[in-house]
Design a protein around this nucleic acid. Sequence first.
RNA 1: CGAGGCGUAGCUCAGUUUGGCCAGAGCGCUUGGUUUGGGACCAAGAUGCCGCAGGUUCGAAUCCUGUCGCCUCGACCA
Length: 471
Amino acid sequence: MAKEITSTSEDFNKWYTDVIKKAELVDYSCVRGCVILRPYGFAIWENITGVVDKLLKKIGVENVSMPLLIPESLLRQEKDHIEGFNVEAAWVTCGGGKELSERLCVRPTSEVLFCSHFSQIIESWRDLPKLYNQWCSVVRWEKTSRPFLRSVEFHWQEGHTIHSEHEEAREFTITILNLYADFFRETLCIPFILGKKTEKEKFAGAKETYTVECMMKDGKALQSATSHFFGSKFAEVFEINFRDKNNAEKLVSQTSWGLSTRVIAAIIMVHGDDDGLVLPPKIAPIQIVIIPIFPKREEILKKSNEVFENLKNLFRIKFDASDHTPGWKFAEYEVKGVPIRIEIGPKDVLNDECVLVRRDTREKKKCFIKDLKKNLDTMFEDINKNLYLKALKNMESRIFKANSWNEMVDLLGYGGFIKTLWCGAPVCEEKVKNELGLSSRCMPLKNKITEGVCPVCGKEAITEIFWGKSY
RNA sequence: CGAGGCGUAGCUCAGUUUGGCCAGAGCGCUUGGUUUGGGACCAAGAUGCCGCAGGUUCGAAUCCUGUCGCCUCGACCA
């Protein structure tokens, strides 16, 4: 066996790093915490950005590009914001062989750059809203890093919008959250809990932070996309004001939201199995691979090529005529998570057939070549459905309700989310964190609270909340 | 940043305790041939400043000091 992958049951963390290496998604670079996205890994990201970019443009978001560097004085203007990012900031202190008079921060996020720009270009209510986004990479000096999950440099999109009214901004925060949610469900086949972060867990400088909270196969949580409502918190500091319809001066209301290469970690850990990646068809760099069983036999090569030519404009498809054995290729494309493979061998050529094999279920199916297109379409649909439902089942089976502190303690060993009521007090959240090792994941948007008490302090509860271990 | 583990061939590792026939194995890679419906086989090859820098010693992969990097678990974060 050439490519050994640690099994998920033996060591989930090792399995994860094995998979990303064996599937050739990343390689480690010579800079600590910075990884190289290899062609196959970057292709996944390109497919993700392609879909998300389209969704954003559909609702009127425009792409821009902000500088990589932020002057220290600018970054320091909003107090909560710099506090949140201070420890993980990377600084440029030298340029052109000279010490700089002011340090420049390599952007950890671009709120302040957008703010300072907005303050320049906004004058009238007619200029609003501005719905901006940029695709870029940012740097956060993380102490420990793991590819896709947490790295010093990572790629993402960061959206920044300003609106004339708080209500409109808040609504937009939720619009984006729902856009992310649709993307996770429809494109990535990943289930999630939509919710609001607690004060403790929210973004540095935000008034409210909303999250797409996903559960990995091992029961741990991954905050996979976020959307923040700022109100006028930044607008005040950066003086982003405008004249409203009554000629009164007014501050804008603001949002920001982001989705990073971390979603690739989610894809790996939600769908993957002991044989490697299982990629959702819509973002798989190779959706179909054709494997000829005897690539040197002319009739097989010819038939395979014919199939390839017929499908190549409909799907992202690869024809592998290399001289590896079929068994080697089967395993190789399974590691890489290719959703469907087409086998064409001597028996098939005789009947003008081929064999379709699904990555997610391993199901094999004979198919007449003339019916391929139709069969592939339905198979892709099935795969999409199956991936989502399987992941949903796993998540739901790992959400445990607890009514008391003792029940919470009893549920600790199972791995997953614990759902309780909560009084809203930070001390209770702190206690759960310190004594149970669980952080609050989110307060669900679909809050079904009627009445009850907080299991930590016994006082009246104001919300439902999910607890869990997170990546 | 705290606790632990690890750096030897492209990869996985043996060798380190007890310094000296100790530069090794398997996989991969190259070439040729036979194979091919679940990671094929045979033959012939190529590949190393033993992470890096100092030190101890007649002699260091092996002992000492420093340093860099990686992994796991905490803390912190998307």
